[in-house]
Simulated scan of single mutants.
Amino acid sequence: IILIGLVILTLSVIYDIVSVTARIPYLPLTLSGMTFLILSFAWLLGNRYTELYNRLDEETNLLEVKVRERTEELRDAIFKLQERNKQHEKDLRLARVIQMNLLPDQPENLEGLRFVAHYLPMDDLGGDFYDIFPFSQTKTGFLLTDVAGHGVAAALVSMMLKLAFTSEAKNDKLPAEVLTQVNDSMMSHLTTGEFFTCVYGVLDRAKQSFIYASGGHLPVLHYKKRDHQIYELENTGPIMGFRRGVEFENKEIKVQEGDRLIFYTDGVIEARNAREDEFGLDRLKETLLKYSESPLDRSVQALMRELYSYSGDWTVQDDFTLFIVEIVQL
């Protein structure tokens, strides 16, 4: 149509020029041709605009359909993820209940002893584990392990350690022998570089002794009531879970009525305040000594208050385990 408009405009101009040259009366057509050409352009642009608008409307409708489809797909995917997450949380809660049930209750039947424990994992599941082995009325074994890391993997390793120690300690073996056999047993199952520390000892009230062995663990603290002092029991072996055939050494100390043995993991002494300063071993010993004359349960409660006070709004930064054994009667 633009071509027709150009032809009409050209013929109109030629007509006007010829009429002027021949000096014959005429009706000017150039303006009419120009008008027709402009109208032709306007019609063409309007037609193109209509085509573009219709195409845009089709593309918009198609895009809306795709958006609705993708939205439904995303909604379904989110729903499935939420359901999986709910199941995962349910499984973790169940696993936590199972793990907590595997820990010994606050025993009432340990003749001549008092025992208080405080356990708080960083996540739903933790890598710390403690246990009690009552061999006789006068002889009791105490175990504390700390698996590197926390969460599901550490919890699974700690459960394996419970089975291994229960199997090896049942015959009342010396602690060093138990640690060596547990280490070798765990090396048969640990293939991804997990390692752990532990301390295992047997308290014999008849002999007034505590024989222990440790594998890279923090020192057990011995509160001597007669001296009103706290002493650190030295480590007797390396961290466990690296290689077979590791040998550990037994150590023996004498105990008396009123003495306490304090077992703990690094989550206790690594609690931090607002300045990122750790609670530390020295402050732990000072606090234990400060409340040493209080009944054992109140002493532990006071220690926990000190930890909360020091750390402010305390959030657990590592698995936290503390248990204390008090010799009431020999």
Results as ranks from 00 to 15, higher is better:
Asn183Tyr: 07
Gln87Tyr: 13
Thr71Asp: 10
Gln229Thr: 07
Glu83Cys: 08
Phe242Ala: 15
Lys86Arg: 15
Ser188Phe: 00
Gly5Trp: 13
Leu52Thr: 12
Leu37Ile: 11
Ile78Phe: 09
Phe41Gln: 09
Arg55Ser: 10
Ile4Arg: 11
Leu307Met: 08
Gln256Arg: 05
Ala154Asn: 00
Gln99Lys: 01
Ile253Glu: 04
Thr60Pro: 05
Ile24Trp: 00
Tyr291Gln: 04
Val255Ile: 15
Pro295Glu: 13
Ser292Glu: 11
Ser136Leu: 06
Pro175Gly: 06
Tyr200Ile: 08
Phe135Leu: 11
Leu113Met: 07
Arg48Trp: 10
Leu3Lys: 14
Val65Thr: 15
Leu9Tyr: 10
Pro175Val: 06
Tyr291Arg: 04
Met34Val: 15
Thr35Ala: 15
Pro175Gln: 05
Asp123Lys: 03
Tyr26Glu: 09
Val246Arg: 12
Arg275Cys: 10
Leu303Tyr: 09
Thr192Cys: 02
Asp16Asn: 11
Leu261Asp: 06
Phe323Trp: 08
Glu168Cys: 13
Glu232Arg: 14
Leu161Lys: 10
Ala95Lys: 02
Ser294Asn: 11
Met187Ile: 10
Met304Phe: 01
Ala155Thr: 03
Asp313Thr: 04
Glu72Trp: 13
Leu110Lys: 02
Thr140Arg: 01
Pro28Cys: 12
Trp314Phe: 14
Tyr26His: 13
Ala154Arg: 01
Asp313Ser: 08
Phe195Arg: 07
Met240Thr: 08
Gln229Val: 04
Tyr223Thr: 01
Asp184Trp: 09
Ala169Leu: 09
Val65Glu: 15
Ala154Leu: 01
Glu234Thr: 12
Leu3Asp: 14
Ser294Cys: 06
Ser136Arg: 08
Ala22Ser: 13
His217Met: 12
Leu233Gly: 00
Asp227Gln: 13
Gly126Leu: 09
